[in-house]
Amino acid sequence: MTTAPAVPASPDAALVTFSYGGGWQSTAALALAARGDLPFTTFLFANVGDDSEHPATLRYLAEHAAPFAAAHGITLHQLARTRRDGSTETLYGRLTKPGSRSLPIPVRMSNGAPGTRQCTADFKIRVIGKWLKAHGATAEQPATVGIGISVDEIHRANNRRCEPHERIVYPLLDLGIRRADCPRIIRAAGLPVPPKSSCWFCPFHRLTAWADQRRDEPELFAKSCALESLLNDRRAELGKDSVWLTRHAAPLAEVVSTDDVLPLDFSDGTCDSGWCFT
């Protein structure tokens, strides 16, 4: 694996930043930046809400990523979505707001197909974009934004919409880094490997992830079931069909086995490797 600096920043770039999501790839990028192998000194973490991000991700950020970044001269900003009145909006808060009809997460419809996914755009891409523009990024002078997509997920590079004020680069691709390389890079930097990064209620979870949550985090699993029930109660009032947090068109508590061992399920989603460009 080469350790030469990856795609250099545009000479006209107002800012050079990296979008940090707390997962394996972006933490590996943080470790590489700390040792001078990537040209990023500003990392941006778009927090979709302390009530929405998985608690383990927030603990890792506070206990490991942020202190590590500070010790190596890297700025790690934690950003949040703010309303016009200055208050903070969270993804879970939007979903559970009394009277809300908003359904921004990719819940599974009755036929198993995912619904519209607006959460990444609203709570990550636009949040980071707002910060970039506030710090000088424009269409004429775009910010360079690094995204932590690895070689084995190269197809995801085409799924990230590029805004006029940003220039997207994929430094892990340029270095030939695969997801499987990331734990070694992270440990070599003296960091523990972070947990998988996602919202705790993400419908892209595999059944194995839901089973882990039910076994290891029963209170969080109960909260996931309650959220699914709340969404369906509201849809029933509107005369709409039910939606689900898995593709199996049944309540989460019925779908997820209570057994310790489940057959592998690789078709239930992709939110265990940083689908939200993390």
Results as ranks from 00 to 15, higher is better:
T2M: 14
T2F: 05
P5M: 04
P5A: 06
P8H: 00
F18H: 09
G23V: 10
G23F: 01
G23T: 09
A28T: 05
A28N: 08
L30W: 08
A31W: 07
A33M: 07
G36T: 09
L38C: 12
L38W: 13
L38R: 11
T41R: 15
L44P: 06
L44D: 09
F45P: 02
F45D: 03
N47D: 13
N47S: 09
V48G: 06
S52M: 09
T57M: 07
R59P: 03
R59Q: 10
L61R: 03
L61D: 02
P67V: 12
A71I: 01
L76W: 03
Q78W: 03
L79S: 00
T82F: 07
G86V: 06
E89Q: 11
L91A: 07
R94L: 15
L95W: 04
G99D: 12
R101Q: 10
S102D: 15
P104K: 08
P104I: 13
R108E: 14
S110N: 12
G112Q: 07
Q118Y: 14
D122Y: 09
F123W: 05
F123N: 04
I128A: 02
A134K: 10
T138L: 05
T138Y: 00
Q141F: 01
T144W: 00
I147S: 04
G148A: 09
I149L: 08
N158Y: 14
C162W: 03
C162Q: 15
E166P: 04
R167D: 10
L172I: 09
L175G: 05
G176K: 07
R178V: 07
R178A: 01
L191E: 05
P192T: 01
V193K: 01
P195E: 10
S197A: 14
C199L: 13
W200H: 02
F204E: 08
L207I: 15
L207G: 02
A209D: 15
R214M: 09
E217S: 09
P218F: 01
E219N: 11
E219A: 15
F221W: 08
K223C: 03
S224R: 09
S229R: 15
L230H: 09
N232C: 08
E237N: 08
S242Y: 11
V243I: 12
V243C: 04
L245I: 11
R247S: 14
A249P: 09
P251M: 05
V255N: 02
V256W: 00
D260K: 11
P263W: 00
S267R: 11
G269W: 14
S273C: 13
G274E: 05
C276W: 01
C276D: 13
T278S: 14
